[in-house]
């Protein structure tokens, strides 16, 4: 077991393994998204209150889910990097941040577009769920700005890991905001029983798993870039580049 982790953390091994793993994430992910989107848009019945506008849930919820998952990966990666000095763990944060920011942006914009016809507003200042999700976006921006402002990779890793860990409190606030305060946003649907008909729920789960798989593929690809850049002066990269088949 420990040998496996050790191998995983070895950059040349990981660089090659990630390349073979990517299609195993991307292809099932894309199939699930294709099914989920088609079913969510055309097969599933409209909602008794919201009509067809409710179909936005099929992109909004997976985006919001990933916006928090990506942050947690960033924070856990930073924590592991700080404690066990695993370089690859720090690379996870660097690779996950732009993806997390993209999905946070999507969650905010799709939520806003959904809120306009249903709630009657694009945005409500001071609403706990909306505000904390916006702060999540700023945390991603801050994390990326901090990283790019420090040239020394080891120091950038440490500083940004601390920021990521401090920001975890905001993810907790995002998650529980609809329970702790009165929010315009409704409560939990996905992992609660009896909130959704099975034929509406199955495509939603397909989208959630599909988005997660595609996110995994995108993260692995970015991790390869990170590993390659961080190891640019090592012998294995030199051998890789000089090998006849190359190593893109």
């Amino acid at each position: 077991m420990w040998k496996f982790f050790h191998q995983m953390a070895s950059p040349p091994y990981f660089y090659r393994l990630a390349a073979t793993l990517i299609p195993w994430f991307a292809i099932p992910g894309l199939i699930l998204i294709a099914y989920g989107a088609y079913a969510g848009l055309f097969l599933v019945s409209m909602d008794y209150q919201q009509g067809d506008a409710f179909r936005i849930i099929y992109v909004h919820v997976p985006s919001a889910y990933l916006s928090m998952m990506a942050y947690m990966m960033m924070a856990v990666g930073g924590g592991i990097g700080l404690i066990w000095r695993l370089k690859l763990a720090h690379a996870v944060g660097a690779a996950a941040a732009p993806l997390g920011a993209a999905f946070t942006f999507l969650a905010l914009v799709t939520g806003s577009i959904w809120g306009r016809p249903m709630w009657g507003t694009w945005w409500e200042w001071g609403d706990p769920r909306l505000t904390s999700e916006l702060i999540l976006l700023f945390l991603y921006f801050g994390y990326m700005a901090l990283r790019s402002s420090i040239d020394d990779t080891a120091k950038a890793d440490k500083a940004s890991a601390v920021l990521a860990l401090v920001g975890v409190v905001n993810v907790v606030i995002v998650h529980f905001s609809v329970e702790w305060w009165s929010s315009l946003h409704q409560g939990q649907t996905v992992f609660k029983k009896g909130t959704m008909d099975a034929d509406m729920r199955i495509p939603l789960f397909a989208m959630l798993i599909g988005f997660s798989f595609v996110f995994g593929a995108m993260l692995l690809r970015r991790l390869r870039t990170e590993v390659l850049f961080r190891e640019r002066r090592t012998r294995w990269v030199r051998e890789l580049v000089l090998s006849p088949e190359g190593g893109k």
């Binding site: 914009v109 390659l228 893109k248």
Partner: peptide, 28 residues
Amino acid sequence: YVWSCFGLAFIVTVVIEWRGRVRHNEIY
């Protein structure tokens, strides 16, 4: 409303993935 949400999700994911690949190739 519905189509702009699905369209935007598609565009954002494609753009971010494409930019990632461009950066990888540049670094390589």
